[in-house]
């Protein structure tokens, strides 16, 4: 299958290893990956902070970057960004009175999948041939869980990883407190939420906390690092891309 990678602005600039892992994984499964060079950002941060007008240019650019990508599907290693593509971009276009852009955005959204959705629903694989001999706990991010409804797809993928020890995270469905600019505007409430999430992660005894969103992992990982807690964060794509003798 020919798959366009929507790498997301955060992964592009701060966590490129997650993008590389996604490419590695999909190619290993025998698919062709393209990277439409015009892509930048879905506009979620602008929309969620109240800057809908400013987000319009980003939506326009995103739609133009992907609508003629000549691919079967589009994948992003982020539940949150896919959520924005599916649930916000057309709304932003309509609020600006651009119905044509809204329809084009909906067409792109219909072909856009979060990584675990793509693997399980579109490509029909659960065993991706990964090997990752570590103690891992999985945090279902809010937008993948509630906006996209990925359900247990990530866990089904993780359970088939060779060598892995999966540890159940208590209160897993509770938000880590990131929330985009919420982490800055309400930093203390955000930190209180983070503290409880870190407590739950540390309770599991895992050495790695994983999730499908680099943003939430940046938050949880930033807190764990500050505490020198001895647990690190790794994106789901990186685990799934790892093979015996070649940890990504």
């Amino acid at each position: 299958m020919r798959i366009a990678l929507f790498v997301t602005c955060l992964v592009d600039t701060l966590f490129p290893q997650v993008g590389r892992a996604t490419v590695t994984l999909l190619e290993r499964l025998g698919h062709e990956v393209t990277f439409p060079a015009r892509q930048t950002c879905c506009g979620q941060m602008h929309v969620n902070t109240g800057y809908q007008r400013e987000a319009l240019a980003l939506v326009r650019n995103h739609v133009a970057a992907f609508e003629d990508a000549g691919v079967d599907v589009i994948v992003a290693p982020s539940g949150s960004c896919v959520g924005s593509v599916r649930h916000q971009q057309a709304m932003v276009a309509r609020a600006a009175g651009d119905e044509r852009l809204a329809l084009r955005a909906e067409a792109v959204a219909a072909r856009t999948h979060e990584l675990s959705e793509l693997l399980v629903d579109v490509l029909g694989v659960e065993d991706v041939g990964a090997y990752y001999p570590h103690r891992v706990t999985y945090h279902p991010t809010c937008h993948s869980l509630r906006m996209l409804g990925v359900g247990d797809r990530p866990e089904r993928l993780l359970r088939r990883v060779g060598g892995i020890t999966l540890l159940e995270l208590p209160n897993a469905a509770e938000c880590c407190g990131f929330g985009g600019t919420f982490a800055l505007k309400n930093t203390e409430t955000s930190t209180a939420m983070l503290a409880d999430k870190m407590r739950d992660v540390l309770t599991t005894g895992a050495e790695v906390a994983t999730a499908g969103d680099s943003s939430c992992l940046m938050h949880i990982g930033g807190g764990l690092s500050r505490l020198r807690a001895g647990t690190r964060t790794v994106h789901l794509a990186e685990i799934l891309a790892s093979t015996e003798g070649a940890s990504v």
Binding site: N48, R146, M147, G180, T181, N186, S190
Partner: peptide, 8 residues
């Protein structure tokens, strides 16, 4: 702004 937009 008093929400992380977690959707619960």
């Amino acid at each position: 702004y008093a929400s992380s937009l977690c959707g619960a």
